[in-house]
Design a protein around this nucleic acid. Structure first.
Lengths: 196, 196
DNA sequence: CCGCATATCCTGCCACTGTCAAGATCAGGA
DNA sequence: TCCTGATCTTGACAGTGGCAGGATATGCGG
């Protein structure tokens, strides 16, 4: 057995490995216990290796958040793809995707919406987060006849549900089996829209 | 001038002073940059002094969160006191108080709802947080004829608005002058209730 | 194939942090 | 008065983020 290159000096794709390690870390230990050295250890690399790719710890979290926003949008798109094409159904579907993401990756969701260590002035994260917001605006525009308050209402309802469920603080709804939960949430989202 | 006791060995009410210093710290620097030593320094006390009153750093944050939940309830009560006595108006008033608190003390709000460093198994915080939840249940009960989903809907709407506004991510609503903002938010809250 | 500029990663160091142990100081009662 | 307990300080330790400087690999021009 010719010692299968136990530790190559160059990792290959350390950047991606560090992002994956960072997400695993915040999922296991929480964002507030996030440690750059722990991430490096998990990726099997020295404690200063992340600096080259991300600058500092906040840089890593910012990059992770940018990826997170893209996956956040993908979760909404996945729901929209299987929903009725009418604007109201699409808006509700986006809300369900919003909640899906929060339930499936709560730590990442908290990083996106609840952390102060991400730099939204960064080009990458700024663009990714603006794209997420723009998607909401586009949907509301497509729906037609919706005011600023209407937009805010759907958003707030989806966000409130997502945040409370991700934190495990709304067990009355979180305890429902997925199918029923979807129905309940969809009903709440529809309620925020102006009465037809 | 007889040197007005520059540094008495015993502080007098160090516990309260540390809580105030801690809130000031998280307001200025954010929860994720919270430092026990910095809090001690701000209170003019040695770095190990907080340990005696709170055990560890999370203990301090837990105590701060317990106080926070009581003030959170007080903010809702303040709105209810000046609102119409009918159950629906009282529920909307509580929602407005929910948002008030988030806007006036965003850092504390984030500690209550977005931090993982608070110990809800603690007697103090457990009781305080349960009282806040119980208040919601009581109001919904008083309103009568409301389902689990109805309860969740008002809560989620209030929470979503509060969280997004506290984080400064919903400028379209946050930019309104207070009076108009209240009207817009009240309308959104009312919309979550079953149509009369 | 060689040489070298550059990207990538490591080691060593510093200031800072949370926590613990041990000591100093104070308050109040026997 | 003494002394017991509560309160606060000092000093130490491991762990952390960030920086400086060094080591190693990669790819390109010759």
């Amino acid at each position: 057995m010719p010692d299968e290159t136990p530790k190559p000096y160059h990792h290959g794709d350390l950047r991606a490995a560090l992002l994956a390690a960072a997400e695993a870390e915040i999922a296991e230990r929480g964002i507030e216990a996030f440690s750059l050295r722990q991430v490096a250890k998990r990726a099997g690399v020295s404690h200063a290796a992340p600096a080259h790719h991300f600058g500092d710890a906040n840089g890593l979290l910012t990059a992770l958040a940018a990826d997170g926003f893209r996956q956040f949008l993908a979760a909404q798109a996945a729901r929209e793809a299987v929903a009725n094409p009418d604007p109201a159904s699409q808006l509700v579907a986006a809300g369900l995707g919003y909640v899906d993401f929060a339930l499936q990756r709560p730590a990442l969701f908290r990083l996106l919406w609840g952390s102060q260590r991400t730099d939204f002035a960064s080009a990458d994260l700024g663009q990714a987060s603006r794209a997420a917001y723009q998607h909401l605006v586009d949907q509301v525009t497509a729906a037609g006849g919706l005011s600023v308050a209407d937009t805010a209402a759907v958003w707030a309802m989806a966000h409130g549900l997502a945040d409370l469920l991700a934190a495990g603080r709304m067990r009355a709804v979180g305890a429902f089996p997925p199918a029923e939960r979807d129905a309940v949430i969809a009903e709440m989202l529809r309620r925020t829209l102006p009465r037809a």
